[in-house]
Design a protein around this nucleic acid. Structure first.
Lengths: 153, 153
DNA sequence: GCTTGACCTTCCCATGATGGGAAGCCTTAT
DNA sequence: ATAAGGCTTCCCATCATGGGAAGGTCAAGC
């Protein structure tokens, strides 16, 4: 099996397959005499595992751990669950962060006429011009202290 | 005002202030004879604008547009609102994606004993071992077609 | 046999926003 | 005068992924 076929069968791009090998996530593939990488159905299975893990948002370093546990017949399931729960926590934090941004933006967008006139509450907010709120509006999102610098902010 | 003082007053790191200048997001700061950058309160205001925009999750390219509109007294507020609404859409998509991951993981984690025994539904799922679901469980998250490759997956 | 096209190889570069750190100059206070 | 701390530029790292160039290989068709 060529890398292209392994790619098609696993849903992982050839580029990524080579990359995973280079960082030691995959064992180095066998080679034909001419240097082509060769893959077994077993390898494809492993690639699918990685693919599915990526789809669930796991980082490659986590996947490295998960692969180790997968291949360790004596693993305690607690170790796997631990990784999963930590990831759920991360997701929860990121979701909350994005939702805070979204909420703030929605308030601002609702207040903006969106016509040809130049006055715009969105720009007013961004420029720090704090208009008095009649209703207890939440203008803040992702306060600096809590902001997760590791994420897509 | 030094770069350090501008940083303190705006909440943007000195590193980022230089970067924003280098990519043309900020006008090039004035310099003292010895080469130190000099900032005015006006510059600090601009930096705060950028900071706040980043906190709301806008990309630097969007912020470039927002800054242009901010400084254009004749802007139509619709242009600003348009950028904001697009960003809200992005946020909505990302949130949905992360929530789908979270949901799948929670189902799997709930099914996992998390003890010393090796059998683990999480690994079973990752390895593609599709156990028959009694209840209509959703095992899928972020289907490939819809997955936003531009984000932190 | 030779050509052609589709595949493979490696290597370098780019993304987006940010931080770390080194080497060296400047300023300010003691 | 000297030390401390701030400033400068430049390079590198992150994380996962794609793009593309230059060159080797394989299989099918003429």
């Amino acid at each position: 099996m060529n890398i292209g076929q392994a790619s098609g069968a696993s849903g992982v791009s050839a580029k990524m397959i080579r990359y995973y090998e280079s960082i030691g996530l995959m064992p180095a593939a066998g080679r034909t005499q001419s240097g082509y990488r060769v893959y077994s159905p077993r390898d494809v299975h492993l690639l699918r595992f990685v693919r599915r893990s990526r789809d669930l948002g796991f980082a490659l370093e986590d996947i490295r751990l998960l692969l180790g546990l997968w291949q360790d017949g004596a693993r305690p399931s607690a170790a796997v669950k631990d990784i999963a729960l930590k990831h759920i926590d991360d997701l929860t934090r990121k979701i909350a962060e994005l939702q805070a941004m979204k909420r703030s933006l929605q308030h601002l967008a609702e207040a903006c006429h969106g016509d040809a006139r130049p006055d715009c509450p969105i720009l007013d907010d961004l420029s720090g011009l704090d208009v008095g709120h009649e209703k207890g509006g939440e203008t803040e999102a992702a306060p600096p202290q809590t902001a997760d610098k590791s994420c897509c902010r």
